[in-house]
Structures are given as C-alpha cells and as structure tokens.
Design a protein around this nucleic acid. Sequence first.
DNA 1: AAATTGACGGGTG
DNA 2: CCACCCGCCAATT
Length: 112
Amino acid sequence: MQPFTRKVVDIIRSIPEGRVMTYGQIAEMAGNRRGARQVVRVLHTYSKSQSLPWHRVINAKGQIAITDEEARYEQRLALESEGIVVDANGYIELDRWRHYPSEIITEDEFLC
DNA sequence: AAATTGACGGGTG
DNA sequence: CCACCCGCCAATT
C-alpha cells in the first residue's frame, strides 16, 4: 500500500462516530491537496477489506455523494444511526458535524 | 500510449 | 444559493 493510501486509510479510521470529513479534507491531510479523487479510489478499494467507516466521508457541499442508489440509502441510515441529521436531499450541516483533526485546524481557528 | 473515468473541489458569474 | 466549467490524478480501458 502506498504511503498516501496508508494515510488516507488511517485518517478515515480516525473519524469519530457521529462526525464526518470531506474527501478534499482527507486528501489534504494525507499530503495531497488535490487528491480528493484518490480518496474516492481508496474508499472503493479498501472500505471492505479494511472495514472503514466509509459512510463518514461526504463531499465539500456537505452532501452524500455516492452514485449507487442502494449504497446511498445505506449511508444515510448509517449516519442517522450515529445521530447525524441528514435532510431530504441528503445534505448535512457541515459546520455542525464536520470533524476537524487537530493536525490541520481546529474549529475555533476555522471560525476565526 | 492515449483516452476515459469517477462517492471531487474551487472559482466565477 | 446555484449552475457551469475546468483542473485534478491515478487506475483502468
């Protein structure tokens, strides 16, 4: 497994229950600011074998981004079961549920 | 070797 | 807030 991939996996594993992170945010933290699409690839490849909390990853708009209908519904249920509020269109309030790893930025810093 | 393909994102109007 | 457009990048065709 490549270093970048390794980091992405670790980061996704570190997302606490009831919180979410975006593809771009994870990519940046793993060392590649423009690697959002690689994060997608990692999820496709390892979400099962590495038992990742894949449902805690959403896009920058704060929306569930999965294409597949079934999986999308599955993700909604998974998030709601952790207490996260998902609206009718699959949107989540990012400023409320986003996880800010301390290595990058804290919510206070962000709001400042 | 060139084109295509995504669970993407930021800038612009 | 929204729609568009364009840049990204590695795996797969």
